[in-house]
């Protein structure tokens, strides 16, 4: 069940991104900046003249994303390939990476939170979209910011579901529920982060 849902979501996300890129290419949206103007670390928003804290923010982002990739590979590779749960050293790597990720996440939400708040226009766009009214989306950062908050929000149940299982609070059934919460919220977190990173890179490149 979880394996099938995971496959479906990843395929949908991948196809969605491909279609989005193709649509942008057809509209010629990637012509605005020449490649020569980009910093070699443009993909993490690096540019000349960044302050130390700005550099730190980007480094932490890299660390967090790396941790997430490690946790994704350790958790999903066996599950998607052979429907096997993690055991042994794979499990240890997964568990060992988790605290680093969560600490980075705290730093990210504190340091990027203000920048990711919704502007007046974005609120309007959001409300219009909720009410299914036409909304301008030229240079909109709405989805980028929403995926940021969505990812941050999901990191809490992802962490707490495993943390709670380490206490003698939940029995076998509770443990199974916690495990299900962990794996489904993790799937949502990964999906959200992938979309966020895609939008971030797209935004950086444009």
């Amino acid at each position: 069940m979880f394996r099938d849902i995971s496959y479906s979501i990843f395929v949908i996300i991948f196809l969605g991104m491909v279609m989005h890129i193709v649509a942008d290419l057809v509209k010629g949206k990637f012509d605005s900046k020449s490649k020569g103007q980009l910093h070699k670390f443009w993909w993490i928003g690096w540019s000349n003249g960044l302050s130390c804290f700005s550099k730190l923010k980007r480094i932490v982002l890299i660390v967090a994303v790396t941790c997430l990739i490690v946790m994704f590979i350790t958790a999903f590779s066996g599950r998607l390939a052979a429907n096997q749960l993690m055991t042994g050293y794979i499990l240890m790597i997964h568990v060992g990476t988790a605290p680093v990720f969560i600490v980075c996440t705290v730093f990210l939400i504190v340091s990027w939170g203000y920048q990711c708040r919704l502007t007046e226009n974005e609120w309007g766009e959001l409300l219009n979209r909720i009410m299914l009214k036409p909304a301008s989306h030229e240079n909109s950062m709405l989805f980028l910011k929403l995926t940021f908050w969505f990812s941050m929000g999901l990191s809490v149940p992802v962490s707490l579901s495993m943390l709670a299982s380490m206490f003698t609070i939940f029995g076998t059934h509770g443990q199974e529920v916690l495990f299900n919460i962990h794996q489904y919220t993790s799937l949502a977190l990964v999906s959200s982060v992938v979309i966020h990173l895609y939008l971030l890179l797209r935004n950086q490149y444009k």
Binding site: P99, I102, V110, M152, V156, F167
Partner: peptide, 15 residues
């Protein structure tokens, strides 16, 4: 456990 609890609380507060 302590780190994750503190981190979760901080994230929760910012959220």
């Amino acid at each position: 456990k302590v780190v994750v609890i503190i981190a979760s609380v901080l994230i929760g507060l910012v959220l």
